[in-house]
Structures are given as structure tokens and as C-alpha cells.
Amino acid sequence: MEALLSLAIGVLTACGIYLALRGRTFPVVLGLTLLSYAVNLFLFAMGRLAIGQPPVIGSGLPGYTDPLPQALVLTAIVISFAMTAFVIMLALKARAELGNDHVDGEHSR
């Protein structure tokens, strides 16, 4: 399971960085989104992986899973969601005002 999760985070990060380095705004937005997914998974894993455990401490329970990373991930998801919405609107605005969808506002020859 650790190998699977780290592989998922690695692939998402690699794809995100590759797309974020592209020259057009839409792949860049997609890249940043993939990067934020990778970050969310990474944050989640930082509380250690525990399957089937409750996120509270109580007597008679076999153990617990750390609830704090889950709260952090929730905050991070909300923030990255808002940021993605904003950057999509900005990309559309740039497309409308600059006449093309290149991140520099013009295609270099």
C-alpha cells in the first residue's frame, strides 16, 4: 500500500510539473491541479497510513488514525479549489484580451 500511494503521488507530481511547464494556459492549469492532488495525497499520508481505524482516541478501541492531516487536507482542498477556479477565469480573461492562450501573451517564433 505504501508503494502504491507513493507511486500515485510521484506520477501525479511528475505529470503536474510537466504540464505546468507547457506554453499554453490550459495545460498549465491542469498541471497545477494535478500538482495540488499530489500534494493532498502527500499531506494525507503524512499522518501515517492506518486502515479501518477511527480518528478518535477511546478506551476499548484498537488504535486510532491521526485526524489532523485530514483536517489539513480539507483546508488545502478548499483553497486549491478556489485558486483553480480563479486561475481558470484569469486564463479565459487572458485569452479574450490577448487574443491567444499562450502564457506569455504571444507565441514566440
Binding site: G47, P69, L72, I79
Partner: peptide, 14 residues
């Protein structure tokens, strides 16, 4: 930059 910040924060928490 925000993504990098979160990775750093996550590592420190871990």
C-alpha cells in the same frame, strides 16, 4: 509556490 509550501509543511508534520 503554495504547493511547495504544503509539501514542506506535510513533511515537517510527518
Amino acid at each position: 509556490g503554495s504547493s511547495l509550501f504544503l509539501i514542506a509543511v506535510g513533511t515537517l508534520y510527518g
